[in-house]
Design a protein around this nucleic acid. Sequence first.
DNA 1: TTTTCATCTATTGTCGACAGTAGACAATGT
DNA 2: ACATTGTCTACTGTCGACAATAGATGAAAA
Lengths: 215, 215
Amino acid sequence: MKKITYKDRVAEFIYKEIIKGNIKPKEQIKETHLSETLNISRAPIREALNELTSVGILEYRPHIGTFLTDLTADDILNAYITRGVLEGFAASISFPKLTKGDINRLYSMCDKMEMLAEKNENVKLIYLGDKFHEKLFSICGNKELVKFTKMLSMKSHLMFSKYWPKLYLPKQINERHKKIVKAIESGNPKTIEREIRNHYTETGKKIAKLKKEGV
Amino acid sequence: MKKITYKDRVAEFIYKEIIKGNIKPKEQIKETHLSETLNISRAPIREALNELTSVGILEYRPHIGTFLTDLTADDILNAYITRGVLEGFAASISFPKLTKGDINRLYSMCDKMEMLAEKNENVKLIYLGDKFHEKLFSICGNKELVKFTKMLSMKSHLMFSKYWPKLYLPKQINERHKKIVKAIESGNPKTIEREIRNHYTETGKKIAKLKKEGV
DNA sequence: TTTTCATCTATTGTCGACAGTAGACAATGT
DNA sequence: ACATTGTCTACTGTCGACAATAGATGAAAA
């Protein structure tokens, strides 16, 4: 499906630039510069910047400009914790809707993640990881919760794409996610919620630690 | 502190208009109309509309316009549930930071809420309720979580200001909130989380029910 | 009458220009 | 040397005009 307005395309463009690492944290994203680069006026660019600001990827200071967020170790940890709380709850109430087939698909996704990690296929790995977790949180049907979770997802990509190779071994990635699927299979909401919270808190702590060490 | 840009003032203006009931759900908010009313150009107005859209108060359809959200019964319930999940978690981890003085203040706020409810001081009641709950969720220091919770808070005001007189008796308001404070005093995270989730789920269900009955 | 299609209108999308501000830098006075 | 002040510049903030679109209206054809 084709995008209709410039705003969306610009937002996507900026997001990709960030993911690719072409923009550094704390760096100002100048409207005029983008305007010249993309050959469009500043109006749609401003809207795109606003959008990304409200997602939490960019930071806006009135009369000064828009900057790529520079997340502190605490910010990172908090983002992951919050993600765990939301997704944990979502999964804990929506597991009855998951069929046996869904469960099997989740299991095979775990294996595939390991495979992709071994082949260093970062982009595909992140994409698959997203799909896995999206299954967990989107089935609950709570739009509000889904919206927030997706915002956090975008945010965590900023860091994950940078740090991921140092976080887990391919086999660990597999096991960590299988642990979640097993929790879901158990059918115990408390267990599901706890397991998913741990999943995220663990990663959050790891990344925060790396950040503190200035990696 | 004085606001610096038009955008913020416009956003506030629109929000107040909505709260006051001068704009009805599903109604289009026209840029041109606001532009003429406020005697400013459309640029800052668009930005304000974008902002409120990202909060979830307004709904935007490309090339058509921006409309006041018309929440379904499910939307309402989901918003309250999500709020409960976030605030419940926040309070469950931040209770150690609350002093004896804080607890006492919370108790007296419960009494004051009852008083305001009896006097039909809706605006002050809502404001105090906000302050009460803000204490619970903001101390945790998790900016991400606080941001989301505040977004939900704005959203729920839309409905609360409309439905609140039919929800609880003054005495019930008092008791419901005291129940939360007691849970906090217990120092049991699980209890705190459960109690706050119930608090919101209960209200969400009530409002959703009223909505379904077409009140 | 009903359907189709062109036209019209109201509203949003985009533009280029100008105004206003924050921060850098130079000039001045002590 | 140092603080203060003034200027200059590179941005963002705001503006008014125009382009493009969706939906309404009305005319033409069956």
